[in-house]
Amino acid sequence: MSTLTHIDKQKLERELGMGGGYVLDFSNRTFEEFFWEVVGVQIYDSQYDYGSGSKANRMRAFWRVATDKQLILLFQGLLEGWEIYSNAPIPDTSRDLIHSVLAKLGVTLSTLHKQQDDTFQLNIGVSQRLTSRLFEVTALPAQRRGYEFEKFLQELFDVYDLSARASFRLIGEQIDGSFVVHNDTYLLEAKWQNSPIGVADLHTFEGKLGEKASWSRGLFVSNSGFSTDGLQAFGRGKRTICMDGFDISEMLRQRMSFVKVIDAKVRRAAETGCPYVSVHDLFV
């Protein structure tokens, strides 16, 4: 029997938009496919007939009889596929609620991240959508690309459930955003320009990091990459790691775990002092 409390269910109903008989933006077909492929149950089986037989009522019937293992599969699937089935990034309130429910079921954030490191594969539909979105940014006028590139990166981090924050401004400086991996906060610098990033921009971002808490790290994302001379002049032993447009494309093409990519870059930087090694070279 389900261990969800009445309060859990009421909160979940609110976040999933179940008041009108719907669940997110699932169609009958996608609802059936989701439950079969992710949870392993036939949601239109007679045991889930309840009330009007709407998607919301079938979800309620499932909550009544589901095992904890089935609930875990359901909620992990919702975290991964929320954007597909709602056509919008997952709200913080929804993410936090699902995390709290999973914690009651014995699945902590650290467990989720470890599962992502070891077995995660990005949903193919999400991968294709993000790849198309990146191409759309490429086609934009130059003055809009930087802003839209930042928005794209926040969408990317949200897909990987990394508690992303949009750009914020402090006195005298701007940070393009932040995200969290393994409880480490990464500040983000994002650049879209025609030429590779040189040493001046790298030093400027490292200087911003130096004014923050000692445990914060930095990710510098440049669609056009980084100049070899700039990386050499930047030196070693910094808190910044680097990612370029080819890294993002390769990660999406292979449907890789973003956490796994960041971990590999951090480890290589620790071993060699080099802030940039391509995803291709890290995983060949």
Rank of each mutant, 00 (worst) to 15 (best):
G210L: 01
Y147V: 13
D68L: 09
W192I: 06
D244T: 06
L105D: 06
S195E: 09
V181S: 07
R144D: 15
R64P: 00
L112G: 03
V107F: 01
Q116T: 11
S257P: 12
L134V: 03
A270Q: 15
S132H: 10
F135I: 08
V38I: 15
V38S: 07
V65H: 06
Q116L: 01
L162H: 06
L252F: 06
H203C: 03
D176C: 09
G17K: 07
P89Q: 01
F168D: 06
L202C: 02
M18S: 14
W63T: 09
T108N: 00
R14M: 14
K151D: 08
Q76N: 11
F34E: 00
L102M: 13
E80Q: 13
A213Y: 02
Y186L: 05
S163D: 12
R217E: 08
L71E: 10
L97N: 09
G245E: 03
V259P: 04
T185S: 02
Q42L: 08
Y276Q: 07
M59D: 01
S278P: 14
E206C: 03
D158H: 02
S100M: 09
I98E: 01
N194T: 12
D92N: 09
M243H: 05
A66P: 05
G172L: 06
D45V: 11
L282H: 14
D263R: 15
M18L: 12
G198R: 00
F258I: 10
M1G: 14
S214Q: 02
D45L: 10
G172I: 08
E189M: 02
S127Q: 09
L156H: 13
R165G: 10
G125V: 06
S94K: 05
S178K: 11
